[in-house]
Simulated assay, not measured.
Amino acid sequence: MENKSLTALVSAFSRAYHAEHNQIKIFDDQLARQLLTDEEYENIASNMSQAIAFFQPGFAGSQEQALRRIVDHQLSPSPLGRAAFAEQALAVAATLGARQYIVFAAGYDTFAYRQPEWAAKLQIFEIDHPATAADKRRRVSALHLDAPSNLHCISADFRDPDWQDRVLANPAFDPALISFSSLLGISYYLPKDVFKQFLSAIASLLPTGSSIVFDYPDEQTFTSQAGERAQKQVMMAARAGEPMQASYSYSELEQMLEEADMLIYQHLTPVEITGQLFHAYNDSQPAHKITAFDNVNYCLAVKR
């Protein structure tokens, strides 16, 4: 966390690769490629394709075919699926009255720079660790993109007890406004007690009717019953210096949210994610089908 997030960079790479190589997309992030330098993009591509023996032993094919297989099978399902789920839910929330969009651990998220017309009524808050936030600002500046007038960037380390004060200190933030918060890719890397406190802290900032969307690893993630991809993802995260630390059963998560005064409004399992979010892409690419990541569920919760 002291340096720019490696997992965030790989997520940006997977969104960029998917957007560049497909006409019909699970999630279209047309700016992700621009945030990466050519050297970074090629280095990630090369490192991943050379790791085909780790991801899929016995694979036979070219380096480009190996890269496509790794991206579609291992790298992109979670970044694409959770982003699609979150932004679809955000659009509904905005229609129902949400006026603030809070992106926790924003990483290299590009929503603010490609926001649709309906997002103009939202105030967007990107909150991230100072190192990653500074790196993103540098990349955006290099692209000479105009900062949207409704975007507000807040540097905060969620391990510090004063991160809430940093949010409340932002003059654009209004704790009385119904808000939509995304916590994508966060639950994996926090101990259970810390994630529970984090959910409660976020809920305490928001009024009734606000919602939170996040992805989380299920209770089999760290067991021998986990899917092969999930087991390898655990190893990859550890090697990147960002080890996964917790997993949750549905009942455990439900109880945790109830204690934060929140109720589960929508919940998708991998089979449901593939059927609801990936079907159009899979119909268009029968030779390169993508299935939702093993042992990862999506959740949308609403504050009661």
Score class of each variant (00 low, 15 high):
residue 167 V to H: 07
residue 167 V to E: 07
residue 168 L to F: 03
residue 170 N to H: 09
residue 170 N to V: 04
residue 171 P to T: 03
residue 171 P to M: 00
residue 171 P to E: 05
residue 173 F to E: 01
residue 174 D to Q: 09
residue 174 D to N: 14
residue 175 P to W: 02
residue 175 P to Q: 03
residue 176 A to L: 02
residue 178 I to G: 13
residue 179 S to W: 00
residue 179 S to M: 00
residue 180 F to P: 00
residue 180 F to M: 06
residue 180 F to Q: 04
residue 181 S to C: 13
residue 181 S to D: 09
residue 184 L to G: 11
residue 185 G to S: 10
residue 185 G to H: 05
residue 186 I to T: 04
residue 187 S to C: 09
residue 187 S to W: 02
residue 188 Y to M: 02
residue 189 Y to H: 06
residue 190 L to C: 02
residue 190 L to I: 01
residue 191 P to C: 09
residue 191 P to N: 11
residue 191 P to L: 07
residue 194 V to G: 10
residue 195 F to V: 03
residue 195 F to D: 10
residue 195 F to A: 09
residue 195 F to E: 04
residue 197 Q to C: 02
residue 202 I to R: 00
residue 202 I to P: 03
residue 206 L to D: 04
residue 206 L to I: 03
residue 207 P to N: 08
residue 207 P to T: 05
residue 207 P to R: 01
residue 210 S to I: 04
residue 211 S to I: 07
residue 211 S to G: 15
residue 212 I to A: 09
residue 212 I to C: 12
residue 213 V to R: 05
residue 213 V to W: 03
residue 214 F to N: 07
residue 215 D to N: 05
residue 216 Y to N: 11
residue 220 Q to G: 07
residue 223 T to V: 06
residue 223 T to S: 14
residue 223 T to P: 12
residue 225 Q to L: 12
residue 226 A to G: 13
residue 228 E to L: 11
residue 228 E to S: 14
residue 228 E to P: 08
residue 229 R to S: 15
residue 230 A to H: 09
residue 230 A to M: 13
residue 233 Q to I: 12
residue 233 Q to L: 14
residue 234 V to C: 14
residue 234 V to D: 15
residue 235 M to A: 15
residue 236 M to E: 14
residue 237 A to D: 15
residue 237 A to T: 08
residue 238 A to D: 14
residue 238 A to N: 15
residue 239 R to I: 14
residue 240 A to E: 13
residue 241 G to R: 02
residue 243 P to I: 06
residue 245 Q to K: 09
residue 246 A to F: 05
residue 250 Y to F: 12
residue 250 Y to D: 11
residue 250 Y to T: 10
residue 250 Y to P: 01
residue 251 S to T: 11
residue 252 E to L: 11
residue 253 L to A: 08
residue 253 L to I: 03
residue 254 E to P: 08
residue 254 E to S: 12
residue 254 E to D: 15
residue 255 Q to K: 06
residue 256 M to N: 10
residue 256 M to H: 10
residue 257 L to H: 03
residue 257 L to I: 04
residue 257 L to N: 09
residue 258 E to T: 14
residue 260 A to C: 06
residue 261 D to P: 00
residue 262 M to Y: 02
residue 262 M to S: 06
residue 263 L to D: 12
residue 263 L to C: 10
residue 264 I to F: 00
residue 265 Y to P: 07
residue 265 Y to W: 10
residue 265 Y to N: 10
residue 265 Y to Q: 07
residue 266 Q to G: 09
residue 266 Q to W: 07
residue 266 Q to V: 06
residue 267 H to L: 02
residue 269 T to H: 02
residue 270 P to L: 04
residue 271 V to P: 06
residue 272 E to R: 06
residue 273 I to G: 06
residue 275 G to C: 11
residue 275 G to T: 14
residue 276 Q to Y: 07
residue 276 Q to N: 04
residue 277 L to P: 03
